[in-house]
Design a protein around this nucleic acid. Structure first.
Lengths: 163, 163
DNA sequence: GCAGCGTCGTTGCACGCGCAAGGAGTCGAC
DNA sequence: GTCGACTCCTTGCGCGTGCAACGACGCTGC
């Protein structure tokens, strides 16, 4: 009796084929799509994907401006990373910095007319890419399934330090 | 008649809420999980995730060795990127380079005993992380659904230049 | 043999990012 | 008021990566 060699361990030492396909598929899809979309956007509008994300989030914010730290969180970038990114975008005239009247420490990134024009032009390219490379493959109910999957995963992964 | 303002364009200028959740969820899940897994692996074994991927692929290859270009493709890295990565792993004694007898241009990356030991130690950490942060949330048939989703997306995305 | 062309891996360079440290400002306790 | 602890953004530095260029080699046709 007892457990001589534990024939079916609770946590096998390897992923089975199905698990590998589900997990590595995710990694590959992300890597492939983000590279493709970035290249598309850069070729068509000379705009890196991260810059596009900044413009998009700022444009969607009310007053077309966002606090730096809030923006960094939205696009999953460190604060220093965002500082340089906004530096570049400001140099290119797509956003400008504004001081925050209620908190002198803070800064807003706000859209310039050129930034809005750039975004309007780039949005069509990006959306078409996302649809063609990704959304097109899923029906509405499948998109709903995907969305619900992500909402299962994200709460537990958001803060890794806990548990 | 004609189309005065085109009330329901075939390609709306924005993603609807469901599309956003399906698409941005994917991006966020990838970013969050890959950061968390990388941090975990680095904390427990002082091994970056990309290095782990190299060790894993080499270990799974027959003879525990792989050609550089093949390896680069497996982990979605450029050739130059892989050259430096193997430089680091070789410096740390985890892999070694071997010349290819049938093609003097080529080089093999092959596992050292230290590399195999490192991998064996790290594998448990990584697998536990993948299960806890991702696979745990899905039943077998849901994993199958995910896998089939990725297999739909990947063929069209693999080569962006076509179409 | 020996061109010519393609492939394999490496190197110079520049870029984007994170971490740690720092200045400036805010807030609360006393 | 002012001291200490915190937050916000920026800067110095190092790291990992891709692109373009390069040398070495293989392959084909002549």
């Amino acid at each position: 009796m007892a457990t001589p060699t534990q024939p079916i361990p609770a946590e096998p030492a390897k992923l089975d084929a199905r698990e590998v396909r589900a997990w590595r598929g995710l990694m590959r899809v992300h890597a492939t799509l983000s590279k493709a979309l970035d290249a598309e956007l850069e070729a068509a509008h000379d705009l890196p994907l991260t810059s596009y994300e900044v413009l998009m989030h700022v444009a969607d914010a009310e007053g077309e401006r966002m606090r730096m730290c809030e923006l960094a969180e939205s696009i999953l970038l460190s604060r220093s990373g965002l500082t340089r990114l906004i530096d570049r975008l400001e140099r290119d005239g797509l956003v400008c910095r504004t001081t925050c009247s209620s908190d002198a420490r803070g800064a807003f990134a706000c859209l310039t007319p050129a930034g809005r024009a750039k975004l309007d032009a780039a949005r069509a390219t990006h959306l078409a890419g996302v649809r063609r490379l990704f959304l097109q493959h899923f029906g509405p109910e499948e998109q709903e399934v995907l969305a619900s999957f992500w909402e299962r995963v994200l709460p537990g992964a958001a803060s890794t330090h806990c548990r």
